[in-house]
């Protein structure tokens, strides 16, 4: 039992760090209505950039910023492929993702992983500052919460601005956005850029917290992000205030990690994890169709009148 609690503890911390990635997926998938596969590459990109900079002696906090910027670039590439060169959305993401695999490898100097053993990260720095009682998971959690709260605040503000509203309109009804004078290509690029920036930042934080970056660390990011977004939606609904929707997305990420921790404890082989996740997401995405086919909605006569 104690072992389970411990693993749940670290699952929560990991969930919040991955939750920043989920916010990025939320921007593309829910706001822009665009399933962006670039994130598999940009998550690892963030990790690779941050790790190599730390190895080169950079400040870990500064390396997070550079990782974020590198993610922005990845998003722009996908956006240009899709909007200017008219490559279908999914394929644009796949192309960026594949290209990023090679790019990430060369960023890491041709090695498949970089260990940050004994190097200073934002987590070791914070641990030194915090009281002695804080264990590793607690430190990760605190940093994750600080980052995600700040990001949610910024996103809440941004999507309330004139430009932010136009991005939402573009995702909702591109035709209307253009008729209202919106440069929808630019709005899509902007959304993709922001999303991939956050995903790369999340990758950098995860790399620093686990103590290594791996070229394969981004595999399945999009699926995990979708899982978290869907879990958040199922639990909290969609009729809630915008800020709470973002909170529900991060919470979804935490719950996803807890579920994973529990089933691993129950004896699922970790090599089957991705299969399990794919099944969960496939099931969650098919719920509306299954509901419509097999469950007849009850008509509330009073309400219908």
């Amino acid at each position: 039992m104690e072992g389970l609690l411990l693993s749940i503890n670290s699952a929560v911390a990991q969930g919040v760090l991955w939750g920043i990635m989920t916010l990025g997926v939320y921007i593309t998938y829910k706001i822009l209505d665009y399933a962006d596969l670039t994130v598999d590459g940009s998550f690892a990109l963030g990790g690779a950039v941050s790790a190599i900079l730390i190895m080169m002696g950079w400040d870990p906090l500064l390396s997070l910023l550079i990782a974020f910027l590198s993610g922005l670039v990845a998003g722009v590439v996908t956006g240009v492929l899709h909007t200017k060169l008219k490559i279908p959305a999914i394929l644009s993401g796949i192309l960026s993702m594949i290209a990023l695999y090679s790019i990430n490898l060369s960023i890491m100097g041709g090695k498949a992983n970089i260990a940050l053993l004994g190097m200073e990260t934002v987590f070791t720095k914070a641990q030194a500052l915090l009281p002695a009682g804080f264990d590793k998971a607690m430190v990760s959690l605190s940093i994750g919460v600080v980052f995600s709260l700040a990001i949610m605040g910024i996103l809440y503000w941004f999507f309330g601005t004139e430009i932010g509203a136009l991005i939402r309109a573009t995702g909702n009804n591109e035709n209307m956005a253009r008729a209202m004078g919106g440069n929808t290509d630019r709005m899509k690029i902007l959304g993709l850029l922001l999303s991939n920036g956050l995903v790369a930042l999340s990758g950098a934080l995860v790399a620093q917290s686990q103590g290594y970056a791996d070229v394969g660390m981004g595999t399945g990011t999009i699926v995990m992000g979708l899982a978290a977004v869907i879990i958040g939606e199922v639990l909290f609904g969609t009729r809630i205030n915008y800020f709470f929707r973002m909170t529900s997305v991060v919470t979804g990420s935490v719950i996803y990690r807890i579920i994973i921790a529990i089933i691993l404890r129950m004896g699922l082989k970790s090599s089957n994890l991705k299969l399990f996740t794919a099944i969960i997401v496939a099931m969650a995405l098919s719920i509306p169709e299954i509901k419509a086919k097999f469950i007849k909605p009850k008509i509330n006569l009073e309400k219908a009148e």
């Binding site: 601005t161 004139e162 509203a165 136009l166 939402r168 309109a169 209202m180 004078g181």
Partner: peptide
């Protein structure tokens, strides 16, 4: 929000509040 977007047709959109 729809009306606010329509009200900005042909205008430069910035980072001020949407409505």
């Amino acid at each position: 929000e729809n009306l606010a977007i329509a009200n900005r047709r042909g205008k430069r959109r910035g980072l001020s509040w949407g409505v």
